[in-house]
Design a binder for these strands. Sequence first.
DNA 1: GTAACTGCAAAATATTTGCATCCTT
DNA 2: AAGGATGCAAATATTTTGCAGTTAC
Lengths: 144, 144
Amino acid sequence: MADSKTILKNTKLSVTASREQILALFLVANGALSQSDIEQKLEAGFDRVTVYRTLHTFVEKGIIHQIPTTDNNVLYALCIDECADGHHHDDHVHFLCNTCHITTCLPDVTVPKVSLPAGFKPQTKQMIVEGVCGKCEGLSVACK
Amino acid sequence: MADSKTILKNTKLSVTASREQILALFLVANGALSQSDIEQKLEAGFDRVTVYRTLHTFVEKGIIHQIPTTDNNVLYALCIDECADGHHHDDHVHFLCNTCHITTCLPDVTVPKVSLPAGFKPQTKQMIVEGVCGKCEGLSVACK
DNA sequence: GTAACTGCAAAATATTTGCATCCTT
DNA sequence: AAGGATGCAAATATTTTGCAGTTAC
């Protein structure tokens, strides 16, 4: 995947320090990040408001998407390639580890189809699995 | 299903006006409610703090459960019978209608199994389908 | 009567908005 | 140079906590 600068240019967003750094966090993170995660990880002290606005912009442009959570902690994660052009195809499962409390994207696990009662027209679907991730199981399997 | 008073007694919670009324809302609602939904629907003006505390108590006792949402609006819904004894078996799909913005439980649609990468141990899973519900489709199919 | 619940006040936290300044293109 | 992005201040919203008074059992 491209670096943050390239992604920003492709999305026709001006390249600024905060956008580059925040996007870089996601590229490294390979999991979901919350507003406060991001604030903590940013070495440069960007204003909290800037982080909010940057995240909103990224969601709007389809660079990241929001992940549903049970608590009221909004999580964001990188959209996979197909998202970037505007169509949101983030139909993959998200995994929340109850040990390390990290939410990981499982891009290889797609959300299965379900048959709904008559009259219901599905458009998008999300799935969150909670449990223990590979890393926390003590296995050498990467949490990728 | 029992009335609110019975449920409270079965759960060994003292029966108070706020608990009865809030629980009654859920019994009628047949869908998910947010903190603000509840505040608005309560005819008696209970303190906001009381609503918060009541919801926390209900979740703790397994009367209701939290539903993950994409926005940061926490939703609560009645647990089906199996939940009431402490085991949370709310493994059914939730449906969020993009037209009427009501989240409905689909107790008959269970969340399908998915196979996770090696090392991941699933414990619980949630699934949210967004689309248009039966009512909003103009069909005579009830949104049950 | 006692333990638990409620309401009020206030603190802590989270999010949004307006505006002047600065930076990207 | 112009438009957009940032930082600061402040407004708004949300959630939590402490405590005194009230209620359920």
